[in-house]
Nucleic acid binder design. Structure first.
Length: 115
DNA sequence: TCTATGACTCCGG
DNA sequence: CCCGGAGCCATAG
C-alpha cells in the first residue's frame, strides 16, 4: 500500500487547493508556505501532477508566483486550463492571469477571516 | 543507493 | 518584470 505516506503530503495540498473559491487562484509557493515548507513549492506542483486522479481538485486554479499558467500543458488539449479559468471570470493574457494579484487567494488569509 | 527530473521560488545583474 | 544561476525536496528509473 503506497498510500498513507504520500497522502499525508498530497492530501494537505489537495485540501488547500480544494478550498480555493470559485473565480480565485493560488500559487504553488503560497500553498507550500501554508503547509510549512515554503521550499517545497515544486512538490506542490508534483502533487498537482498526481491530482489527475482527484476530480475534486481544481488544479487549474493553481498557477505560479506571477500568475503564469505553467501547468496548462499538463491539462487535456492545449488551452483547457485557460478555458476553465476564463469560465470562472478570470481573464487570461499570454498564458498569464490578468490582474493576478486581484484574484490571488491566500489560504492563510482564509484562516484569518475566520475570527 | 545514486542520479536525474520538475505544474517553483529566490537572488544577483 | 526580464535573464541566468542556485537551492530546494519528493518521486521515478
Amino acid at each position: 500500500m503506497v498510500l498513507k505516506e504520500e497522502l499525508n503530503f498530497f492530501e494537505k495540498v489537495y485540501d488547500v487547493v480544494r478550498e480555493i473559491p470559485f473565480g480565485r487562484v493560488c500559487s504553488y509557493g503560497l500553498i507550500a508556505r501554508y503547509l510549512g515548507s515554503p521550499q517545497s513549492a515544486r512538490m506542490v506542483g508534483w502533487a498537482m501532477n498526481a491530482s489527475h486522479i482527484k476530480e475534486d481538485v481544481p488544479a487549474h486554479r493553481v498557477v505560479n508566483r506571477i500568475g503564469l499558467l505553467t501547468g496548462k500543458q499538463h491539462f487535456e488539449g492545449t488551452n483547457l486550463m485557460q478555458q476553465l479559468l476564463e469560465s470562472e471570470g478570470i481573464q487570461i493574457k499570454e498564458n498569464q492571469v490578468v490582474d493576478f494579484e486581484q484574484f490571488i487567494w491566500n489560504p492563510a488569509d482564509h484562516l484569518l477571516t475566520n475570527t
